[in-house]
């Protein structure tokens, strides 16, 4: 029994190792992009909407509203990043019920990669919005002595993001596998249903936390700028 799909190596050439995580990631990406391309090929701006277009619009609009509620600012710049995080994690987790499919989110490498993306997205959006100087000044607040703690905090929350998602997804699969050994009937199905719920919740939590981190950086930067102006 493998804990992580990383351990399933399908192809290896030097340091390049194509494992199950990457393969299922590509499959998921192909599924997402293919369905998006197929749905948006004939979009209707008037009259009746197709069910798929309606679903995608509800999804996009829902993400927009969530970002707007959390960040209290225009969701436009954050939408692609947050929505992609949510869609990728949610689809990976939902497909976990498909026999033979191993969710890439059950790999610590994947969750670390996603957490690193969030880690770099925070300064990216912060710098994009307020510039280098304003963003770096954030780590010196409230006093330059707090710089180490701020940096540790950044790293810690990135690790927490990665481990939380990995732990939940991996534990779900692990529990299902153990239950399958102990009680082959009923319980594995129930645990799979529960796994669908927890998978969606985890995707939501990851996306919400990413939004909070990105928005917190931007908001903190604005608050810092306001405080500096008031001191002057």
């Amino acid at each position: 029994m493998t804990i992580s799909p990383d351990q399933t190596i399908l192809f290896e050439f030097g340091f390049v190792r194509i494992n199950a995580t990457l393969v299922f990631t590509w499959l998921t990406m192909a599924l997402l992009v293919g369905s998006a391309r197929w749905t948006t090929r004939k979009l209707s701006a008037t009259g009746e909407l197709s069910p798929w277009q309606n679903l995608l619009e509800v999804l996009v609009e829902g993400v927009q509203n969530q970002i707007r509620d959390i960040a209290r600012q225009d969701p436009g710049p954050f939408l692609p990043f947050i929505a992609t995080l949510f869609l990728f994690i949610a689809i990976c987790n939902l497909l976990a019920v498909v026999p033979g499919y191993e969710p890439p989110t059950g790999s610590l490498s994947t969750t670390t990669a996603l957490a690193l993306c969030v880690f770099f997205a925070v300064p990216f959006y912060g710098i994009r919005r307020h510039g280098w100087r304003g963003f770096l000044h954030l780590y010196l607040e409230p006093t330059p002595l707090m710089l180490p703690l701020n940096l540790i905090g950044e790293l810690a929350r990135t690790v927490a993001l990665a481990v939380r998602l990995y732990g939940n997804v991996m534990s779900g699969g692990l529990v299902a596998a153990i239950l399958l050994l102990v009680t082959p009937l009923v319980f594995p199905a129930l645990m799979h249903a529960l796994e669908l719920l927890t998978g969606l919740i985890q995707a939501y939590i990851f996306a919400v936390l990413a939004t909070v981190f990105i928005a917190a950086a931007a908001t903190a930067q604005e608050q810092t700028a306001n405080l500096s102006q008031s001191r002057r």
Binding site: S4, D6, Q7, F15, V16, R17, N19, T21, L22, T25, W26, M29, P104, S107, L108, S109, T110, T112, A113, L114, L116, C117
Partner: peptide, 13 residues
């Protein structure tokens, strides 16, 4: 286990 190649590849993905 953390496979840094996979991490990099997943970031790229």
């Amino acid at each position: 286990q953390l496979d840094w190649f996979t991490v990099a590849a997943q970031i790229g993905n």
